[in-house]
Amino acid sequence: MLRYIIKRILYLLFVFLIMSVLLFVIYNAVPGDPARIRAEKFKQKDPVQYQIAYEQARADLGLDKPLPLRYFSWMRQMLKGDFGYSTYYSRDVRELVVTPMKNTVMLNIGAMFLALLITIPLGISCSTRRGGVYDNLVRIFTVVGYSIPQFIIGLVFIFFFAVRLRIFPISGFGTPNFEGSFWEEVLDKLRYMALPLLVMTFSSLGGMTKYVRSAMIDALSMDFVRTARAKGLKEQVVVYVHAFRSALLPVITLIIGWFFSIFGGSLIIENMFALNGMGKVYINCLQNQDYQVVLALQMFYIIIGLAGNLVIDLSYMLADPRVRLG
């Protein structure tokens, strides 16, 4: 067990190193010179001064050194916790991501909670009524749910909830210059978050329901379920106690995997509703060629992703001892 974990962590480090080199090289291949941007303000004044400023900026940014050396100094800074400076936002990356990260995590947890609340009962009820009208209806809905892209769901929801019914505002993250008590502010924020939350929840329903349903069907076809029924247990006890506990394992691993993705903002949703989240920061920086931020974020997501994979594998192992470790 311990050996396996150590081995996996070593792999993880290896993959991470390769990824960091790969990304670093890719970002440095980007056309455009950040030092030139920094020295831009001197350009009109005086060519000599401009040249000096340009050299200074190059030295400041470390662009005068060869690529491998730059990589090591960048890596050292990253490990020290200095993720660079955003030229677009004129702030340190660390300080920059605090608010968006908070918003994104809040939104993701909300959507996850809602989705679980809906999909688990839905999946269970489908599995017990397999092949019936209800099950088939839900299956239609799940296929539709995972086939339709998020932005179409978003457009339809905006049309109904924001344009037609006018229940929720179309975009934003709270009324600008809102004044009121703490709770009023919370309510206001909730109103703004409702629509993106609904869209995110809705778009994850299809896949989740399908997953829960098939996990439950697997569990219900086990021998112990037959035994439980043969013992004369109530059907509800069989489904909710015996079968569900067994079906919970794959669902839990899914949730754990999901938990690691809550830091990543949904690019499409945040762009659509103009939310100040990680996805929006990401797109803004990409569009404005602020690659230091993009690079730092990307590395962060890769670490999270790799760690997530590891935790999922480990949780599988803990949940089901039969899972063979390779």
Binding site: I18, M19, I26, P31, L267, I283, L286, V294, L297, N309
Partner: peptide, 17 residues
């Protein structure tokens, strides 16, 4: 390694670059 690349962002970067 390839699977751990965040897909949409990475594709965006490549196409932007």
């Amino acid at each position: 390694i390839v699977a751990s690349l965040p897909f949409l962002p990475f594709a965006m970067i490549l196409s932007a670059i």
